[in-house]
Simulated assay, not measured.
Amino acid sequence: MPRSDPQGLRELLGPSASLCRRSIGGEQGVALPPLIDHHVHLHLIDERELTAGGIAGVLDLGGDPAALARRSPDGMPRIAYAGAFLTADGGYPSGRGWAPDAIVRAVTDPSLHPGVAGGAATAVDEQAGFGASVIKISLNTAAGPVLEGAFLAAVIACARERGLPVVAHVEGDAMTEASLEAGVDVLAHTPFTERLSAALVQRAVATQTWISTLTIHDGVSAQNAEANLAAFASAGGRVLYGTDLGNGERGVGVLVDEVSALDRAGVRGAALVGALTDTSFVGTPSGVSTFIPGPPPASLGEIAAWLGGATVVPSEELVHDDI
C-alpha cells in the first residue's frame, strides 16, 4: 500500500491508523492506539517485557489484590485488575501450584452484608477496596465445585451494586449457559469445552463480551474455541484480545499466534485492531502509542504477522505524515 494512501490504510486497519515517522532517526511506520492484553497473570510473567513487545495495558484476571494495589497507577504498562478469584470452597483454582492462597477467595456464605466471614459481600468488597476494576469468578466444573444458586447470585448482585463488571472463567458442560442465566458480563476465555448452539451464541451476543485466549488450547478444545468465537463474532459479538499470559511458556508481548487465531475466526482488519485497542476495562494508557516500523500491510491476510512488530513509544516521538 503506498504511503500516499492514508484512506486505504484506514479502510484496512480502522480510523485510528496513521502513517508516521519517528522524530529521532526518521524511521517510518504506522501508528495505532496503545495495545491491550485483556487476560494476563502478572505474578507469572516478567511484565518488563510487555512494552517492548507492543503491549501498553493489561487486565490481570487473578492475582493478589494487595500486591496489585501497591503498583503505581502511572506505571507502564497500565494495569487494571480483578484481584483474587472468587470461587466455591475447594473450587478452581484452589490448590493449583500457580495459584497461591493470596489469589483465591472462597465464598462460603451468600450474605449480602459486609464483614461476614466468607460472605459474598465481604469477598467483593475486599477486591473493590483494593481497586479492582472487575470481579473474577470461577465456574469450572472440571476442577471442583462452583458457585451456584444463592452464592453466585449474591456475588453478582454485590458486584452490580458496586458498579463492577463480572468476568467468569467458564469450563465444563453447560457452564456457558449457566453464566448467561446468572448475568455474567464477560467470559475470560472463549468457551472451549463444548460447541455452542446458534441460539446460545445469540444470547451471548446480546449480553456478554468474550476474551479470546484461543491459543492456550489444543485438540478438540482449540477447535471448539475457534468455532465458537467465529460464530460469536459473525453474529456481532464483542471480542477482546487476551492471551492468558502466564499460562504456559510463551513470549511476552503481542502474540502472533493469538492474533492469527482471531483472524481465522473472522475477527479481521479494523475489527482485529479494535479487539486489541478496546479501553473499556483497562482505560487508555496515557502518553504512549503503538509503533510498527516499515511499510503497512497490503491485505487482510498480512495484518496478524505485521502486528507482531509492534512496540510502545511515547506519542510525542511520532510525527504523523497523513494528518
Rank of each mutant, 00 (worst) to 15 (best):
Val167Leu: 13
Glu148Gln: 14
Ala188Phe: 07
Ser179Asp: 05
Asp125Cys: 03
Ile135Asn: 01
Leu152Met: 05
Thr193Phe: 15
Leu164Ile: 13
Ala174Lys: 10
Ala142Tyr: 11
Gly131Val: 05
Pro191Cys: 10
Gly183Ala: 06
Pro191Ser: 12
Arg105Ile: 10
Pro145Gln: 08
Arg105Gln: 10
Ala159Arg: 01
Arg160Val: 08
Val116Thr: 11
Gly183His: 07
Leu187Cys: 12
Glu171Pro: 01
Ala154Trp: 02
Ala117Asp: 11
Phe130Arg: 12
Glu161Tyr: 06
Leu164Gln: 11
Val167Met: 12
Ala123Met: 03
Arg96Gly: 07
Ser133Gln: 14
Val104Met: 03
Pro191Gly: 12
Ser179Gly: 13
Asp101Ile: 00
Asp101Val: 05
Val166Glu: 04
Leu187Ile: 08
Ile156Tyr: 01
Val107Thr: 02
Arg96Gln: 15
Ser138Thr: 10
Ala188Ile: 08
Gly149Val: 04
Phe192Leu: 09
Ala117Gln: 09
Glu171Ser: 14
Phe192Met: 10
Leu187Gly: 07
Ala128Phe: 09
Val155Asn: 00
Val146Phe: 03
Asp125Tyr: 01
Asn140His: 14
Gly183Tyr: 06
Leu152His: 04
Ala120Met: 01
Gly163Leu: 12
Thr108Ala: 03
Glu161Ser: 15
Lys136Glu: 07
Ala132Lys: 00
Cys158Asp: 03
Gly118Thr: 01
Ala150Thr: 11
Glu161Arg: 15
Ser133Asp: 10
His189Tyr: 10
Thr122Leu: 00
Val166Thr: 14
Gly149Leu: 07
Arg162Val: 11
Val184Pro: 02
Ser179Tyr: 08
Leu147Arg: 03
Ser138Glu: 07
Gly97Ser: 15
Val124Ile: 11
Ala117Trp: 01
Arg96Tyr: 12
Ala117Gly: 00
Ala99Arg: 03
Ala159Gly: 10
Ile103Asp: 05
Arg96Ser: 09
Ile135Ser: 01
Glu181Ser: 09
Glu194Trp: 07
Arg96Val: 06
Glu181Gln: 13
Ala188Glu: 11
Arg105Ser: 05
